[in-house]
């Protein structure tokens, strides 16, 4: 018995183990998550629409009004993150609070805020782009590709 070195579990294949885990692991509450994402995401867009109509009501032309709305929503996202509310919304809203541009603002403020302790350059300056950086990189990349394709195909 003392000679038994290779444990018997290791004979259990990774695939079999994954099956066992899938049985034991609690499920995501898909339906609840989906409904909450819809409601939270929809509400954020509704607020955006309200702000958009206020700006167009002020006589801003459509594109300017849209840019101003984005900036306002970004402000709201950053502010709610700063006062510690946005992560609570995110706990329930999931993608409903990640996908809107307020979530983009949240992804900038959250790492920057706690990285302040590592300084203003490598802390705030660098860490604010942990998530926003990839978004901008791929956004720019695809927009340039689309521009070039349009130039060639037009």
């Amino acid at each position: 018995m003392n000679e038994k070195t290779g444990s018997s579990e290791q004979q259990l294949e990774a695939a079999e183990y994954q099956e066992l885990i899938n049985k034991i692991r609690p499920r995501h509450t898909f339906l609840k998550n989906a409904i909450l994402a819809f409601l939270v995401g929809g509400s954020i867009c509704l607020i955006g629409q309200l702000i958009l109509q206020i700006y167009t009501g002020q006589g801003l032309e459509q594109q300017q009004a849209q840019a101003a709305t984005s900036a306002t929503m970004v402000f709201l996202g950053a502010f709610l993150t700063g006062i510690g509310v946005y992560d609570q919304i995110g706990k329930y809203g999931g993608a409903g609070s990640i996908v809107p541009i307020t979530g983009f603002a949240n992804s900038i403020v959250a790492p920057a805020m706690e990285a302040r302790r590592e300084g203003f350059v490598f802390g705030i300056g660098a860490k604010m782009f942990t998530i926003a950086g990839p978004v901008l990189v791929y956004g720019f990349l695809i927009s340039v590709l689309i521009g070039i394709s349009y130039f060639l195909l037009r």
Binding site: N33, A37, G41, I44, A95, G96
Partner: peptide, 10 residues
């Protein structure tokens, strides 16, 4: 807006 977010959740 809600539906677009819902896709992300799924």
């Amino acid at each position: 807006g809600g539906l677009i977010c819902l896709i992300g959740q799924l």
